[in-house]
Design a protein around this nucleic acid. Structure first.
Lengths: 135, 135
DNA sequence: CCGTATCCCCCCAGATACTG
DNA sequence: CAGTATCTGGGGGGATACGG
């Protein structure tokens, strides 16, 4: 038990340059995943890439999302300051969602991720097939 | 309704380069999240950033992970070809996990994400506080 | 040390119905 | 059109005990 918890100050100092970055990133990544790692959040953000989109259109564009989850996801994103909501006093009612400044900064890493997924999906599929057909 | 749905063929053609990519990315992102979007996967990948790590050390470095989930996560990563497992015929037994070539390519987008999270966590916290303290 | 096997709880998300 | 309210199940994941 002491092995993992008890470290000398020297150890900690040494770790600072090489390893604690990973650990800190681990913590932050943890938070990140708790907020963005769910089933729909990144999808919704992706759909707002090109500008404001209204609720119903969003529901159409994100295949399979339920009203409940769309609402919940948008509320959370709004709370986190990544998405802004603008409702128009019209009839029929119209509500548009768009990325905030902060939300747009998320776009780049998110698309980087998506790019990786597209470039790697073949390799992964192949790797999986190879793994499954081993004895 | 027409505002958002009805677009001229020219518009659609123009969107081809900028927007349908989003939709396809949505699909791919979907798969991505199904595989990497769980609670532990990216954390484990992050811990392998600097080279091979053995099972028990991994368990120590990923705070709060259970043996069960660590094993499951590693198995899945191995199946996907992102992590390779090497066991040494020693006593006591020793098993080391490391990123494959493919796994290392994931590192860049993942760390990009982590970087964003670190740079943005303050903003998000602030936004959340502002949102919660509104009437 | 490195896992596997089993049990079980919690909560996420889907379905459905209803309001402004 | 743009949500809210409520019920429900399925599965992710923790705890624990055991095996190689």
């Amino acid at each position: 038990m002491e092995r993992s918890v008890h470290r000398s100050p020297a150890d900690l100092a040494e770790m600072d340059g090489m390893c604690s970055a990973s650990i800190e990133q681990g913590m932050i990544l943890r938070d990140l995943l708790d907020h963005l790692g769910d089933k729909w959040t990144l999808l919704v953000v992706g759909m707002l890439e090109n500008g404001a989109v209204r609720y119903s259109e969003l529901k159409n564009r994100v295949p399979g999302i339920s009203q409940r989850m769309l609402t919940l996801t948008l509320k959370k994103l709004e709370r986190d300051g990544l998405v802004s909501r603008q409702s128009f006093a019209e009839v029929p009612p119209r509500v548009e969602y768009s990325l905030t400044e902060l939300g747009r900064t998320l776009l780049e890493p998110a698309l980087g991720f998506a790019r990786w997924a597209m470039e790697s999906s073949d390799h992964i599929t192949a790797a999986r097939a190879a793994y499954d057909s081993r004895d």
